[in-house]
Each structure stands twice: as C-alpha cells, then as structure tokens.
Design a binder for these strands. Structure first.
Length: 564
RNA sequence: CGCGGGGUAGAGCAGUCCGGUAGCUUGCCAGGCUCAUAACCUGGAGGUCGUGAGGUUCAAAUCCCACCCCCGCAACCA
C-alpha cells in the first residue's frame, strides 16, 4: 500500500486580519509542499481553516453588534477568500465550530476521562458583577502593588514587568466595562493531567531528534525539561463547545483544546460531504500508512509537539500522530511591528491589490524564516522580483520565444544533432533537479528556491554559450535545435516552478496548448527536453512579469510605513 | 533573573552536528555578447567568521570557557 500524505496548516484565529507573516509561517509552506506531492502523483489531503472560539471572538462580536454565529461566518469567509486569492489549495477548509468538531472534541475528552487523564480543580477567578461573567487574567486591570502603575493587567504589570496574580491588584476593574464591581469567586474547571504523560512524550519527542527541524525539537525539549503540568481545558465562557459533564453547564471547552482537534473535525466535515468515497479514518486513524506533516509558526510548536500529541495519546485511540513538524520563525516587517490600525505592514488583502499572488509567493518562499526570523522590506522585495522573476526567468522566456518567432514562426523548430552544449545542459539539469527535489522533500525551502533559481540560470547560460542569433546566419538547422531546446526549457521551468507560482506556471504551460497538467519531471533531462516536438505550435507571450519601478518602490515604502 | 534562537564581505543568507585553504545571492568594478524586460554570460575587488593576542589541537567559523549585543518565549496568550 502506498503512503498517503496528510498536510495540516495551523488554523488562523479570525480575530485578526491576516498579514504576510501568517502566510510565511504556515499556510504557504504547506501549500508549496502539497502541490509538490500532488504533482508527484501522491495521495494528498491538505487541511486548513480558521479558529473561531475564545474570548476575543466573543468580545469582537459584541463590539460589532453581531451574533456570535454571524461574526464567525463573516470573518471566516473573509479569511477564506483571501487565502483563495493566494492560491492556497486546501482540500478541506473549515472552522473549529462545526458539529463534526464538537463530536471529535467530545470523543477525545471522553477517552481522556476514561483513561484517567482528566481531573477537577477549584481555583479563584475574577468575576465582574456588572459584566456578569468571569474575567481572564489579562481582562482584569488595577494598580500594581509593586510600582503603583494604575493600568497593570492581571497577568503582568507592563510598567515594571513583574508577573502578577489578578488577586494582587489593588482597586481591580474589568477592562471590558470598566466596572470596579469585581469579586473573586471559586470556580471549578477540568484539567488534563499532562504530567502523567511526561515520560511517554519524552521518549516520543526523543525519537524525532534529527528528523524535525531544530527549532521544533528544541522547543519541545524545553517544555519537557521544565516538567509538564496539568492544564485547564474548560473555562467560564460562552464561545466554545459545551462540556458533557454534570456541573459544567455554564462552561465551555477552552479554545486551545478544541483548536487542534479542528484538523480532525474539518477532515470529517469534508468527508461527510461525500461519505461513499471519503473516510476521515483513512487519514486520522492509520498511522502506519499516513505521513502527517504539520506546518506552523514557532508560537504553535508547544501545542503541536506536546499538548495535541498528548491529547491524542491519552484518549487511547490509534491516532495518526505528526510525522514531521515544520515550525518556522517569524516574518517581520522592516518598518516595525505590523499593525492594522496604524496601517503599517502588509496585510493580505492589500498585498493582492498591489501585486499578483505569485510575486508574494516567490519572495516569501525564497526568504522563508526557517531557522531565524526574517524581515520583509519593499527594498528587498523589489530587488528580488526584478532580478529573479524578470531578469532571469521572464527574460529567458521572452528572448527564446521572440527569437523563435522571428526566425521560425510559431511552430517548434526541429531538434537536430545533439552537441556537447546540449549534453552539458542535460547533465547540469539532472544534477540541479535532483537537488531541488531532495530539498523539497526535506522541506528545506530556502535551499529549494535557490536551486530553482539556479535551474533558470542554466537556461540563460545555455543560450549564451550556443548563441543562436549567430547560428541562424550560418546554420539554420543548428539554431532550430537550440531554440527547440530553449522552448522545451521554458515548459520544464514552468513545471518545476508550479509549486511556487501555480498561476504563472499555468500561464506558461498554456503557451504550448492543451496539456497544462502538472506532472513532476522525474525522467532524465534529455527526455524531458523532448516533450515538445517539431511542428508543435505555441503562442509568443507578452511580458509575463513586470518590473517594479524605483518610483513605485518608494511609493510602497511610504504607503506601508517601511522604515518609519 | 530563567529558557530558546541569532551575531560570517555594504545588504540577505549557507557552512558549525562529523574541526583541515571561508561559500552563495544581491550590490560594486571590469570584460564579453547584442537574441531579449538597459537584460544575459564571464572574471575581479570586498570578510580580524560578536568579543577575549582565552582553552584544547599540528590545525577552530566549526569543540570547551567567560563576556557583550539583537530577537523571541515564559503555560487562563490563541
């Protein structure tokens, strides 16, 4: 039985407007990988969506005067659209508030409970009599007992940075309503006893050493080293799933608990649409045959490497656990902290309005914050787009097609005798394509993109060496051979670029007619470069990529407050 | 304070695990070519590899020690 590939990308919280950092952290890498595997003919299920539970959503809905349901629908849809704009090829896309997810959440909870991993604890929590609700630590304001700062929060004082408990605050008030009518009430909540899983998780994480990226492995190890503790899984809130247990009628599962289960819930929701052909169990309960790769930003690593695996393990079922955990660092903005209200930084809707999605995809993947935080700047963006996409790739396509049309018309010229120059090209490509493919399989994204660029360069190199513009004057058949090879290179470049720039790849393949299907090139270069035959017609394109002018660059820097 | 990541040519990065003439892209300079988006190809200059005339070694960017700087995280934040 062949392996199946389950790919999940961290769900985005709908409270915020997504920016390029979200794309770089999880979704784009995941899409890149999914497209690559599909092209190779693998069985892939790419799951993504939004996370819609928790306090912030509740507050957001109240502020906009919408019901929870309407608020969730509105923002979920907004996120979905923008991801579509970036050509993210999710097979299953949903949110965490579905019936299916509730079913899975309850199922995992019951399993944990049956196996003795759930306990009950009573704690004191701030309750506002005017708001008629419990407040999260950070929703409690007051005067810091250490420095006297009047706007300290219940978890930490921003002024003196001391860590606080809400009860320590003098003159506490609700940051929701401003009411000072705060009391501290006993409340009981359910906890998952992570400490009981410590040794199991330790050996499991240890088995990932050398397999996972350093950042994922070290982060997981850090948490284990500090010792796992019981963690609350219910809360005194409204926005979330109800808890199937007596005495918990006014509480819901805490968002972190049902959010990762959302991957499973979303898969089931997808499967339920076509119950004959789709089975969620094929993906989530078949660890022997499913390779599960998770993509996320570094903030999410603890949840995916420790808590979620622990939840699945503790539930006692045979779940598909994560095989490869691709955690990435942050993509920051050169102008400072990205902020929608201050209109600083690049948000995804703005990004699409400025440039085609593929420009962003190329830049972000080429500069993926894999080992360290990366910085986006229009300075760098402009240089990269102009150089790589325009001068190297775009110009190659343009020079080859223009030359061919001028001397041979719009049909592919005959491939004549193969010379040393072609053999050298074949050898170079065989090496580079192998390297590129290997880097993609290992999810070394920056390196893969550097390989791709080098592959494009090899085309220009070949043309520079063979000089078809000279050959055409003395030996037209030879010129035909070179341009035949050049046209085949264009097609090959499109195939190889498709995981990075799907739309541009399609545009290029369309020049050569009907067969636009992306099949990963696995034959020898000599074979790959004979796909287009003598007489096949093609269309000479207009410029496929447009340069960003210095003026435009300056405008963008001002508009998005770069370096301010 | 603690923990994690980082500090390598003007800029952005690889190399560090398994010590052995310091690499890539861009930028800069020169040459080639003139089919092409003033593009393409070739060559060159440019680095005390954060600091310590520290330790180990025949040999250290790479291992050990101390210190400095930057970024992030600390579990009712999702």
């Amino acid at each position: 039985m062949t392996k199946k590939y389950l790919i999940t990308s961290a769900l985005t919280y709908i409270n915020g407007v997504p920016h390029i950092g979200h794309l770089a952290g999880a979704m784009l890498n995941a899409d890149f990988y999914a497209r690559f595997l599909r092209a190779k003919g693998e069985d892939v299920l790419f799951v993504g969506g939004t996370d819609v539970h928790g306090t912030k959503i509740e507050v957001g809905a109240a502020q906009e005067g919408l019901s929870l349901k309407d608020y969730i629908t509105k923002y979920h849809e907004e996120h979905r659209k923008v991801y579509e704009g970036f050509e993210l090829s999710f097979d299953a896309f949903g949110n965490t508030d579905s019936e299916q997810n509730k079913e899975m959440t309850w199922r995992i909870y019951e399993g944990l409970n049956k196996n003795g991993y759930i306990s009950e604890k009573i704690t004191k929590q701030a309750y506002c009599e005017d708001d008629k609700q419990f407040l999260a630590d950070s929703q409690v304001g007051g005067t810091c007992p250490y420095c006297g700062y009047e706007k300290a929060k219940g978890d930490q004082c921003e002024n003196c940075t001391k860590l606080l408990e809400p009860e320590e605050l003098k003159n506490p008030y609700s940051t929701i309503s401003g009411s000072h009518n705060i009391i501290f009430k006993d409340t009981k909540n359910l906890y998952i006893d992570m400490d009981k899983m410590q040794s199991h998780l330790e050996s499991w994480v240890e088995s990932k050493k050398g397999l996972w990226p350093d950042i994922a492995y070290t982060t997981a190890k850090k948490w284990l080293k500090e010792g796992l503790q019981a963690r609350g899984i219910t809360r005194d809130l409204k926005n979330g799933f109800s808890v199937p247990r007596e005495g918990y009628e006014d509480k819901v599962f805490y968002v972190w608990f049902d959010a990762p289960i959302g991957y499973i819930g979303i898969t089931k929701e997808w499967a339920d649409k076509d119950p004959v052909n789709r089975h969620w169990e094929d993906w989530w309960q078949d660890p022997e045959n499913v390779v599960h790769t998770e993509f996320m930003g570094k903030d999410n690593i603890p949840f995916h490497s420790i808590f979620f695996p622990g939840m699945l393990y503790g539930s006692g079922e045979n779940w598909t656990q994560v095989s490869f955990l691709k955690g990435t660092s942050w993509l920051n903005f050169a102008g400072g902290k990205i902020s929608k209200s201050e209109h600083r930084g690049v948000f995804l809707d703005d990004a699409l309005a400025e440039f085609p999605a593929d420009y962003w995809r190329y830049w972000i993947l080429a500069n993926s914050p894999e080992s360290d935080d990366a910085v986006f700047s229009f300075e760098n963006f402009t240089a990269t787009i102009n150089k790589d996409l325009n001068d190297v790739l775009g110009n190659f396509i343009n020079r080859v097609t223009k030359m061919t049309v001028k001397d041979f018309g719009t049909n592919v010229p005959a491939l004549g005798e193969i010379t040393e120059a072609e053999k050298e090209l074949y050898a170079t490509l065989d090496t580079l394509i192998k390297q590129y493919t290997d880097h993609m399989e290992a999810l070394e994204i920056r390196k893969a993109l550097a390989d791709l660029r080098e592959i494009w360069v090899s085309g220009n190199n070949y043309i520079a060496k063979t000089e078809p513009w000279k050959a055409v004057k003395t030996d037209k058949a030879r010129a035909g051979t070179i341009l035949n090879t050049g046209l085949n290179l264009i097609r090959l470049f499109a195939l190889l670029s498709s995981p990075v720039m799907p739309a541009k790849a399609q545009e290029i393949l369309a020049l050569f007619g009907k067969n636009k299907q992306v099949v990963w090139p696995e034959e020898k270069a000599e074979v790959l470069l004979q796909a287009l035959k003598e007489g096949d017609s093609f269309v000479a394109p207009e410029l496929l990529f447009q340069k960003i002018t210095p003026e435009r660059k300056e405008e963008l820097k001002v508009k998005y407050k770069e370096g301010v």
